[in-house]
């Protein structure tokens, strides 16, 4: 898992590997890191198809005008620090949107260090920081 600042748009991003039901197939993606995203991951529909992600659950989300829309959640494996983690990825159904978004749930065991001045994004395991404090 590598944190970067994308020079094209100045956004903090994370390079991760994802996989679905296709045996042995892993895809490297660059996802926008957003602390306002309460879930683990949102993936464009084409990425979900590419890795063969399977539909796991459904729910609803509310648009700004109060109108509810269905949300599809897929089972996706993500490699975080060499460890494979099974997460729920919501589908970005806008075909124009090709960028994945990763949320805070994916990094729940990490501390994110964002240096906007130096344009750096680093992830440190929470337990390592706690050990150093002790």
């Amino acid at each position: 898992m590598i944190g970067i600042f994308d020079a094209r748009d100045g956004s903090p991003k994370v390079v991760i590997e994802i996989s679905g039901s296709k045996e042995g197939y892993k895809k490297q993606i660059t996802a926008l890191f957003d602390t306002g995203h309460s879930g683990s991951l949102s993936l464009p529909i084409l990425d979900l198809i590419d890795i063969g992600a399977q539909l796991s659950s459904v729910g609803e989300a509310e648009l700004a005008n109060g109108y509810p829309i269905p949300v599809l959640y897929f089972s996706v494996k993500v490699i975080v620090d060499g460890v494979e983690k099974q997460v729920l990825a919501s589908m970005i159904d806008n075909p124009k949107s090709t960028e994945a978004i990763c949320g805070v749930e994916l990094f729940s065991s990490h501390i994110a260090l964002v240096n906007f001045k130096k344009q750096e994004l680093k992830f440190v395991k929470a337990e390592e920081v706690e050990e150093k404090k002790e």
């Binding site: 995203h37 949102s42 829309i69």
Partner: peptide, 8 residues
Amino acid sequence: YSLNFNPC
């Protein structure tokens, strides 16, 4: 952009 997401 997406769902489950408050844009910042």
